[in-house]
């Protein structure tokens, strides 16, 4: 009897620590911050701090810049990862096997190391420019280094997110059975028709999941934009850290954090909807 009741309690015992951690370290401080940002100096309800954020040019520029960098990174990421995942799914060659190994490599490299590796690779007089110079000194004069530019953040974010995105898209593509593609071929569909009308709609969920999780990761990232991005404009992650530490404005930093959290939470909701529709089998 005792054994049975312990057994039935076991799942609850096991999920209690993560729930306490999530609530204690994420939801509670987030809620606290949220309430604080809506409290005026006199303690009453107020949008004062948000209005302050919206009236601060550098904050708004930073928000827009973060959106731009995130969307451009996501476009680049999908442009690279979708064809790569398609190749890995439909090719049985040895090259595909090695390509998968290489694509997953960044997964095992810490972000800060890959950021420094990228700096050494594409900064002025870095490895890339040296190679170009060796091939053509004239061409190397036109070399445009993405280091400390928005392109630097985009390249870094793409590099860091490739393995995860490939894994998610590949998992989605593997769920598209070969029979579904063959039956489309059988009724007369060309490769493009099969891609646009069968493969793409059937991998929509995987693509949405990859989109949401990468959006959240890139939008709130700090290391890559800090090390590879320009001094101005800054992404929200960098701005937040500077506002808090360098400018010693914890209240402003808190408002920036709540805005960042709110954007990510909205995308998180889309993710939760996508995952739950997958569980219930809805298309």
């Amino acid at each position: 009897m005792v054994a049975r009741s312990t057994r039935s309690l076991l799942p609850y015992i096991l999920i209690t620590p993560p729930i306490i951690l999530v609530f204690g370290l994420i939801f509670f401080p987030a809620a606290q911050s949220f309430v604080r940002t809506l409290t005026g100096v006199d303690g009453s309800f107020s949008f004062e701090r948000y209005l302050e954020f919206m009236n601060d040019r550098s904050s708004v520029t930073s928000l827009i810049f973060t959106f731009q960098v995130t969307f451009l990174s996501l476009i680049g990421l999908f442009a690279i990862c979708y064809p790569l995942a398609l190749y890995l799914r439909f090719s049985n060659s040895r090259v595909a096997y090695w390509a998968q190994m290489v694509a997953l490599l960044p997964l095992f490299v810490p972000g800060i190391m890959s950021a420094y590796a990228l700096i050494r690779f594409f900064r002025g007089r870095g490895l890339l420019e040296t190679i170009i110079y060796q091939l053509s000194p004239v061409l190397s004069e036109t070399y445009y280094s993405p280091y400390v530019k928005p392109e630097g953040i985009i390249i870094g974010s793409i590099w860091e997110s490739i393995p995860f995105t490939v894994l998610v898209l590949l998992a989605g593509l593997r769920q598209v059975e070969s029979g579904l593609i063959e039956s489309a071929q059988d009724v007369g569909a060309s490769r493009w028709t099969i891609f646009f009308q069968i493969i793409l709609p059937l991998t929509r969920r995987a693509a949405l999941i990859a989109f949401c999780l990468n959006f959240i990761a890139i939008f709130g990232s700090y290391t890559i934009p800090y090390l590879l991005g320009p001094a101005a404009p800054q992404t929200l992650g960098v701005l937040m850290q500077r506002t808090y530490q360098e400018y010693a404005q914890p209240l402003q930093a808190e408002t920036q954090a709540v805005i960042t959290f709110a954007v990510c939470a909205l995308v998180g909701l889309l993710y939760v909807r996508t995952v739950s529709s997958q569980r219930t089998g809805r298309n």
């Binding site: 059975e177 029979g179 063959e182 489309a184 059988d186 007369g188 569909a189 059937l202 298309n283």
Partner: peptide, 20 residues
């Protein structure tokens, strides 16, 4: 001739109806 141009039609073992 490629499969999509042949005058044949196939019924597969797994029903292979496009689920979407």
């Amino acid at each position: 001739m490629a499969a999509n141009h042949r005058p044949t039609a196939m019924v597969f073992q797994k029903y292979t109806l496009w689920p979407h």
